[in-house]
């Protein structure tokens, strides 16, 4: 069981090792709150998609499987987007187009095709949960570092996520108007993502956890974008 968690969070992390879904990973990691919001929405999508695909396995003829995946993913994302706009209105406004664009995150289609369509329900759900958490981890890690370096704070605008009634959870670690633009903008995201990818690979190699087997058992790790 714990192998799923190791795969999802570290050895096969969708964001940092498989490099799937880079577009939202780079665009929405400018603050921790944005990263958490999109990460949780993506986690829900991949978990529910894996669940639905695994449940529908008896009807999944080879020829129609891709359209079925697309219908399921698009439908789920539409529902999640509506729910976010109803209950997390301000966060929904901030994330903008990146909520509907979860549909195009290859991570979700990759897990549906490579894993959930061939596995029983518990395994598929666990895979969705761990892979989703892996993506959430990559997003929040990048989001925390970028917010710290770019704004000197953590959890700024926390009310977007926790509601206007919640206390302001912002941790301001530098003077109020500190700003290091590079890290708030996409180039900083690329630099830091590169460092994170290199760091994780170095650490995994160092602890001998990335083996040839890890790479070969997931043929879809080749999908990118």
């Amino acid at each position: 069981m714990s192998n799923y968690w190791r795969q999802g969070l570290l050895a096969n992390n969708p964001g940092l090792i498989q490099l799937l879904g880079l577009c939202p990973l780079l665009a929405i990691s400018n603050t921790l709150v944005n990263a958490l919001g999109l990460g949780i929405a993506t986690l829900l999508t991949v978990l529910l998609t894996n669940t639905a695909v695994s449940l529908l396995r008896p009807f999944l003829y080879h020829a129609i499987r891709i359209p079925v995946f697309v219908i399921i993913i698009a439908g789920l994302v539409t529902m999640i987007e509506r729910l976010m706009e109803a209950w997390l209105f301000d966060l929904h406004q901030t994330l903008g187009i990146f909520v509907p664009l979860i549909v195009t995150n290859c991570l979700i289609l990759a897990r549906a095709e490579a894993f959930a369509s061939r596995q029983r329900l518990p395994a598929a759900m666990l895979d969705g949960l761990t892979m989703g958490c892996g993506f959430l981890l990559a997003l929040t890690l990048l989001g925390s570092i970028r917010e710290l370096l770019g704004h000197g704070s953590l959890l700024r605008d926390s009310q977007l996520l926790f509601g206007t009634a919640s206390p302001d959870l912002t941790l301001q670690l530098t003077p109020e108007h500190y700003q290091f633009l590079l890290f708030s903008l996409p180039p900083g995201a690329f630099l830091l993502l590169g460092l994170l990818v290199a760091g994780l690979r170095w650490w995994l190699n160092d602890t001998n956890t990335v083996t040839a087997k890890d790479h070969n058992q997931e043929p879809t790790a080749e999908i990118s974008g």
């Binding site: 529908l56 999944l60 129609i64 698009a74 439908g75 529902m79 509506r82 729910l83 109803a86």
Partner: peptide
Amino acid sequence: ALALIAAGMGLLIAITVNSTEVRITDQR
């Protein structure tokens, strides 16, 4: 099977849209 799955998702979306309609209008 494809048509049934599409119809099922359509139904779920309709329910979601319907139940969030008022709240989204209010929020906007």
